[in-house]
Design a protein around this nucleic acid. Sequence first.
DNA 1: CATGAATGAGAATTCATTCAT
DNA 2: AATGAATGAATTCTCATTCAT
Lengths: 223, 223, 223, 223
Amino acid sequence: MLIHYFKFREKRQIIKNNGNINNSNNDKYDKILNAAIKVFAEQGYYKSTISQVAKEAGVADGTIYIYFKNKADILFNFFSYKTRMVFDRFKDEVEKADNAKDKLRNLIRSHLAEFQRDPNVAVVFQREALNARHIDDVLIKDISKMYLDILDDIIRQGQKEGYIRKNFQKGLVKRFILGAVNEVINTWVVTCGKYDLVSMADPLVDLYFNGISPDKPVTPQPG
Amino acid sequence: MLIHYFKFREKRQIIKNNGNINNSNNDKYDKILNAAIKVFAEQGYYKSTISQVAKEAGVADGTIYIYFKNKADILFNFFSYKTRMVFDRFKDEVEKADNAKDKLRNLIRSHLAEFQRDPNVAVVFQREALNARHIDDVLIKDISKMYLDILDDIIRQGQKEGYIRKNFQKGLVKRFILGAVNEVINTWVVTCGKYDLVSMADPLVDLYFNGISPDKPVTPQPG
Amino acid sequence: MLIHYFKFREKRQIIKNNGNINNSNNDKYDKILNAAIKVFAEQGYYKSTISQVAKEAGVADGTIYIYFKNKADILFNFFSYKTRMVFDRFKDEVEKADNAKDKLRNLIRSHLAEFQRDPNVAVVFQREALNARHIDDVLIKDISKMYLDILDDIIRQGQKEGYIRKNFQKGLVKRFILGAVNEVINTWVVTCGKYDLVSMADPLVDLYFNGISPDKPVTPQPG
Amino acid sequence: MLIHYFKFREKRQIIKNNGNINNSNNDKYDKILNAAIKVFAEQGYYKSTISQVAKEAGVADGTIYIYFKNKADILFNFFSYKTRMVFDRFKDEVEKADNAKDKLRNLIRSHLAEFQRDPNVAVVFQREALNARHIDDVLIKDISKMYLDILDDIIRQGQKEGYIRKNFQKGLVKRFILGAVNEVINTWVVTCGKYDLVSMADPLVDLYFNGISPDKPVTPQPG
DNA sequence: CATGAATGAGAATTCATTCAT
DNA sequence: AATGAATGAATTCTCATTCAT
């Protein structure tokens, strides 16, 4: 599926790049993708119809099939195009910090900020990524891995630096971190964005590092 | 919606209880529900068809409509009947412990054990609960709340006992705990249950309490 | 179809007469038929279900198939058994009068009285007879003919007696009379029996005989 | 329901009017409606299936749902679109005459002519209007009322002019007139249009005005 | 005879996708 | 490229009828 996708993507790249900068084709691609995200966010992927997406995008039903292979391909493009962009931004933010602690803080902050900035993307990502994960979609696993790889680097660095202890399975810690952010986002989404999501970043990072215990018994542990 | 459900449930109770112990009606209700869970787990709710569920259950398509109002009602019954049972068991396990630390450990353990015991239930619950949450389903919110209420009690008790610090938003901590277990379960589900899920309980609880920091306050130690 | 029916009827006669006077089988046949009439009257034949009829009759769904070949057969029995009884009573009433004028009045009176007495029978008869007529059902045509034959006799006698003029197609006059009563009944049915139907008999017969003209120019016409 | 209908109709008007004179959209709407009328006439509304209508119209099943909301809506459109047209023609014909007698004659003539011209319309109208009347359909009652209102005007005028006597319930007379035409049409329909329906108009109107009595008051004359 | 759970053929309806314009 | 009417496969759901108990 992924291979097929990239073949297809290639073709689209041609479409997308075959002209001037204010490429109107590219515009339409984005218009449809954004419309789809909105509709998918509101109704879920399966309950959404191509007609609804077309209407939201202000194009004819048939036009969608010029820019996307089929309905599933819209979701596919969402994950690869949209989220890849987002994850790249995460990486950039992480790079800006020096130590693991600040890197993790930056990751969580930009993660929450990104999803707060575009709740529809948040909804679709959170919901459909989970679906796709269970259905075993190569692309999704790829994308999940991107995030986990960022975390991996941070943890490794943190352990070197002594900010992070070493006596645990790294895999578990990554789930622990990712799961908590996701749940915070999901809850925020369900409340329809009633509070400031980014303000959750610091308390959350605090919990990551120090847990819920009041204060730790200080037994010295060499780094 | 919940009220409607209970009215309907009542009717089914009559069917389910009107006979001997080897009640074949009850059998069929369970047979269909379990078949549905299996099919839903494999394909997702929307891609699953009634015919597939019927075939899996070894009954005719029409038979399903004797025991369930419609396709959605199967999911509805799954959440209320199946998960209510599960959550009651969680509560029982929690009760068995005295202090908050042990209670949380018991909760996480039984949670992981339960889902390891029946991975299909796990898959459907994790995936469709999230879907339903975004679509605002009263029942699902009810069920989510049950879990969060258990956590609430534990945290409150832990704060009294001194096991848990007080300087945080309780809401955030609950997400922090729930999100991490969920992610651990999801990951396990995606690997098709290749490792022992329950063994994750203790390390996870350790992370909840102590976080990822080493046990003593450290000064950054360049690697 | 009619032949088939009588074969079937025969079998039922056996059922109906195979015992004591308070034959409980016969009771059940009537109970179902009456329940069906009520349900059909409320919802129409096609929208009514066997389950509804069974519930109304206080029997199990399957029991209906002991007394009736299938759903259509219930309607069939309604027309043959119920309406045949009614039409026999019409004939009796007509016989009680001597001259054509009184005979027609008696017919119309008993017709309206009968339908007023049992509105459900009226509804089903009026509605389904028309349906059946267009679908060309032998039995229905038979029954319609019974009524028209009564009318035929009356008109013939009236013409002999000089009460009824001769210069018209008899067929048309019969439609003219039957159509008017039917419409009066239908209107009454639609108003849910809000007024006294029988009181319409005399004015209607007056219209049959004298029409809507104020008074006729008297040109002598030898009988 | 009527309101809902007009909202829907509006949408269709857009479809129907958005083009050239040989509007193929309009064609298809008519093609389906006429096909439906034919199929409904042959089998009755409930026994007819969408597939049959589609086949008769030479379109795919799904196409029907572009032009009609659902199966019931086809019947609905038949009554409002087709019969409204017919009734307007009735009114026009009535207007052409001066006195009540001629007006009634024109009404009956055009009524019979119209139904003779298109027997399928006649069948469906006669049968389904009756069904709908018992089920209480706003539109049908509306349409029935249109006819009764025309009659009302004629009777009122006739009473002023002296053509029609005054000593009766107007409601009854209207049923009397309508019922007779309907029955004449129904009988003609059942015979599959074997004779000339319009030729029944004059004798029928004669019966309306003069009834079945001979032209002078008679003393019973034993046959 | 009576029951009513089970059946499965059949109907309405939806909607992704195509293709002539 | 863009359109949107048309398509028909696929799905849900109903309900007359059967048959084991």
